[in-house]
């Protein structure tokens, strides 16, 4: 199975077990994964759009973030981007959960 295909499958199951950018994927319980997906669509979506194709914030679908390293994306999610409207989500998310979100966004590339 290609990495992309396994990401998609794992995304559907709510558990990511693939290796992205040489890092171990995030192990998240299915219920929490569902809550995270809801958060990405609704809360990230208030700036990036419900379909994640952009709004006040940029397009964050898989294709748009293809060239960006997972580590860098996890940092942006947890610590925000100073000087922009991207807030630090560290008070609400763990590292594992941020990693799960990056994997989720990568899999959302084909929409």
């Amino acid at each position: 199975m290609s990495d992309l295909a396994s990401l998609v499958v794992a995304g559907v199951l709510g558990v990511i077990g693939v290796v992205a950018d040489g890092e171990a994927g995030a192990e998240i319980a299915p219920q929490r994964a569902q809550a995270l997906e809801h958060m990405v669509r609704q809360d990230c979506g208030s700036c990036h759009g419900l379909s994640l194709s952009g709004g006040l914030g940029p397009d964050i679908r898989g294709r748009a973030i293809e060239g960006l390293e997972t580590r860098a994306l996890v940092e942006v999610i947890l610590d925000g981007r100073p000087g922009t409207a991207m807030p630090a989500w560290r008070p609400l998310l763990t590292e594992e959960e941020a990693l799960w979100i990056v994997d989720y966004l990568r899999a959302a590339g084909s929409e």
Partner: peptide, 9 residues
């Protein structure tokens, strides 16, 4: 003061 994070505009 350091602003708190704004999770919705």
């Amino acid at each position: 003061e350091e602003p708190l994070p704004v999770y919705k505009m």
